[in-house]
């Protein structure tokens, strides 16, 4: 079947505007509570699966591979890691052009399978390379609030 009536003029095309008027408060969860509380102390924590012999960063209450419980196996993993991959970003998340581009990297924390995406600082884009050793730079203790933003960025280890 084909719909017979079609718009003849562009000006006939109308639309209705709206939005989804919701906001959210996400609890960080059981493993997240450990991770972000320790963030305030300037520490990064992970969780070890003894069966699979790997460490998740951030920590989780379970191993996604074998489903073992990991809540007894939280451990400090240091604040150093390596650049796994990186990019330079010229737009914000909603498509607005940035005045100063930012360098975004996946940081693999040393000795673990895990890591996370964060910013790189105190470095020029042209100087970043795969495997570059970096360390977390935390905000002043007073300003930390148990958030991933308690880490300002990662910087090269001199």
């Amino acid at each position: 079947m084909a719909l017979i009536e079609r718009f003849q003029k562009v000006t006939d095309v109308t639309y209705w505007e709206g939005q989804i008027p919701m906001s959210y408060i996400y609890t960080v969860g059981r493993a997240g509570e450990k991770f972000f509380r320790e963030m305030i102390n300037g520490k990064i924590f992970g969780a070890k699966c003894n069966q699979c012999n790997l460490i998740y960063v951030p920590p989780r209450i379970y191993c996604e591979k074998c489903f073992e419980r990991l809540e007894e196996n939280y451990l400090e993993v240091g604040t150093k890691g390596k650049v796994h991959t990186f990019t330079q970003c010229y737009e914000t998340y909603d498509g607005v052009r940035k005045e100063v581009p930012s360098i975004v990297a996946v940081i693999r924390i040393d000795g673990t399978e895990g890591g996370f995406v964060h910013w790189l600082g105190e470095v020029e884009f042209k100087d970043v390379y795969f495997g570059m050793p970096v360390e977390a730079v935390f905000k002043d203790k007073k300003e930390r609030e148990g958030s991933i933003l308690d880490i300002k960025y990662f910087r090269p280890i001199k």
Binding site: F7, W16, G18, S23, Y24, I25, T27, E33
Partner: peptide
């Protein structure tokens, strides 16, 4: 008492009416 993160999505839509609803 527990940590949490707040977020308000900033998404807006313009839904085409099409010929019938138009």
């Amino acid at each position: 008492k527990v940590l949490s993160v707040k977020w308000t999505p900033n998404l807006k839509y313009a839904w085409d009416n099409g010929p019938a609803l138009g």
